[in-house]
Every structure is written in structure tokens, then in C-alpha cells.
């Protein structure tokens, strides 16, 4: 797929990696980009920034919580109608609510709250499922002018994490990010006959507002285990998304962009 033929939606688009992906798409000539996010003010500001930098008629915002099935379905439908089709969905929305499952310390016995577990799994995993499901339905409906039978007709990119294999203090986040990989691989297998690809990207520590909430001491500890010795930038993850778009032999796999973390 050519990036300049992308009509795509990105969740978590108001900041960090999601915003960088939207910017990359517009910069590369994607005709239409849909920005989905649950934070109205941040989303408005991000859309205005991109509309000013590129063209107002190439970018549209949808303020919603990815856990809301009906709003997700409506937004995807509205985008596809506005853009004349949909061929990319990027699942980037996520929350990070750190905490050990169970700990005993000077602070007493602490159990990770079920509410936080559910918020994390619902947002990071179920949200990606809902967005992927509706986006795939739109991709299947989309007509691709002059496309060959070998050409990919759509792509789902799911942002997982270096924490997908487990990380102390991040049980909910790790579990959600691990499950996202399973979802991405499953979608790749199910959708291959429809010429829709599905991939995951596993970023390491990236300089985003989410990473800024990780206590400094733990961030330093993580950085000590990054061979390039620094955090990644959101643009470097956006660049990986572009690779996923343009390399049609890449499917059903995880692309690790973590600075060689060990």
C-alpha cells in the first residue's frame, strides 16, 4: 500500500504516538485522516494543529471513548462515508495504571484494584477489538479503484508494548498489551483471504505524556537496559507504522521498536 493512498483512522490521536502517526500520514500525502480520542480539548487542539499545517479538509476529529461500541461504529461509518472508504486503522489508545497485583510493604497489604484492571483491559484491549472490528467491516465495504487482485485492501496496526511479555508492577497493562498481539495475529490469519493485513508494533520506552507518568526512578532503570541509551521519539514509532503500510510482506507479526532493549 502507498501511504499517499491511505484513508485511515487513528485512536489515541490527541497526543504522543497517535498524534505523531496522524502527522506522518498527512505529511506522506494520505488524503484523509480520522483522529479519534476521548479528550475533547486535547483532540481539538491536535486537529487544529494538523489542519493548519496541512489542509483542513484532510483531517477530521471524532471524540469518543473506544470502549463505547455504538460510538465507535458510528465514527468509523462517518469517517468512511466522508473519506470515500477506509483502508487503515491504527489502535493506539491506551491507559497505563501501574501497580503490583499484590504487595506487602510499609504501606500495608495492597491489592491491585479490580476497577483499574477492568479499565485497562477494557480500554487497551476491548477498545482495540471494537475499533478493529468496525474498521474491518468498513474496509470490506470500501471499493479500491484500479486495484489489482494481489493488492492489499486494508491494514490494521495495533500498538502493543515492550511490556507485552510481562513487567513487574504493570500486570494489567502487560496483560492487555500481550493480548493485543494475539488479537493482531488472529486478525491477520482471519483476514488474509480478504487481502487485509494486521500487524502489531511493540514500542519500548517512548518520550510521551504516558511515559512521563512512570516514576523517574523506574524510567531510569528501564533506560539502563536500552542499548541506544535513550527514549524513542513518537516519530520513530510513526515511521514504523509507515513501514507496516508500505511493506505488504509484513503481516501477522510484531515489529519491535525499542532501541535494542534487553
Amino acid at each position: 500500500m502507498r501511504t499517499d493512498s491511505i484513508n485511515g483512522i487513528v485512536t489515541g490521536a490527541a497526543g504522543g504516538i497517535g498524534l505523531a502517526i496522524c502527522r506522518m500520514l498527512l505529511e506522506a500525502g494520505a488524503p484523509k485522516v480520522g483522529m479519534l480520542d476521548s479528550q475533547p480539548e486535547k483532540l481539538q487542539a491536535a486537529r487544529e494543529e494538523l489542519a493548519a499545517a496541512y489542509a483542513p479538509d484532510r483531517v477530521r476529529q471524532f471524540c469518543l471513548d473506544v470502549r463505547d461500541q455504538e460510538k465507535v461504529a458510528r465514527a468509523v461509518e462517518q469517517f468512511a462515508e466522508w473519506a470515500g472508504g477506509l483502508n487503515l486503522a491504527v489502535n493506539c489508545a491506551g491507559v497505563l495504571l501501574d501497580g503490583a497485583v499484590m504487595s506487602v510493604s510499609f504501606a500495608g497489604v495492597k491489592r491491585y484494584p479490580l476497577e483499574q484492571w477492568e479499565t485497562t483491559l477494557d480500554t487497551n484491549l476491548t477498545g482495540a477489538f471494537l475499533v478493529s472490528r468496525e474498521a474491518i467491516a468498513a474496509m470490506l465495504r470500501s471499493r479500491i479503484p484500479n486495484s489489482s487482485p494481489d493488492e492489499c485492501r486494508g491494514l490494521v496496526v495495533t500498538i502493543s508494548s515492550i511490556s507485552r511479555l510481562g513487567r513487574a508492577g504493570q500486570a494489567a497493562y502487560s496483560a492487555s498489551k500481550g493480548a493485543l498481539v494475539s488479537l493482531a495475529v488472529t486478525l491477520a490469519q482471519e483476514l488474509a483471504p480478504s487481502r487485509i493485513r494486521s500487524v502489531a508494533i511493540a514500542p519500548g520506552l517512548v518520550d510521551t505524556p504516558m511515559a512521563a507518568r512512570i516514576p523517574q526512578v523506574h524510567r531510569s532503570e528501564m533506560l539502563d537496559r536500552v542499548t541506544v541509551g535513550r527514549m524513542g521519539c513518537p516519530d520513530e514509532i510513526a515511521h514504523a507504522v509507515r513501514f507496516c503500510i508500505e511493506n505488504e510482506f509484513f503481516n501477522g507479526r510484531v515489529l519491535e521498536i525499542d532501541g535494542g532493549a534487553f
Partner: peptide
């Protein structure tokens, strides 16, 4: 800086090895 609830569990484990004993939950919280 690293003495948070997760770090505490790790420290207690090293403490137990160093002194060859086991602590009760109440002792760990103390």
C-alpha cells in the same frame, strides 16, 4: 527513590537471605 511497595518486597527477600530467616506479614509492614 526505589523504596516503593515493589522495591520493598525485593528488599525483604534479600534481607531474608542475608539473615537466613522468614518474616511474617505484620513484620514486613512494620
Amino acid at each position: 527513590p526505589k523504596w516503593d511497595s515493589l522495591g520493598h518486597m525485593n528488599m525483604v527477600s534479600i534481607l531474608e537471605k542475608e539473615f537466613g530467616l522468614q518474616f511474617e506479614i505484620d513484620e514486613i509492614m512494620e
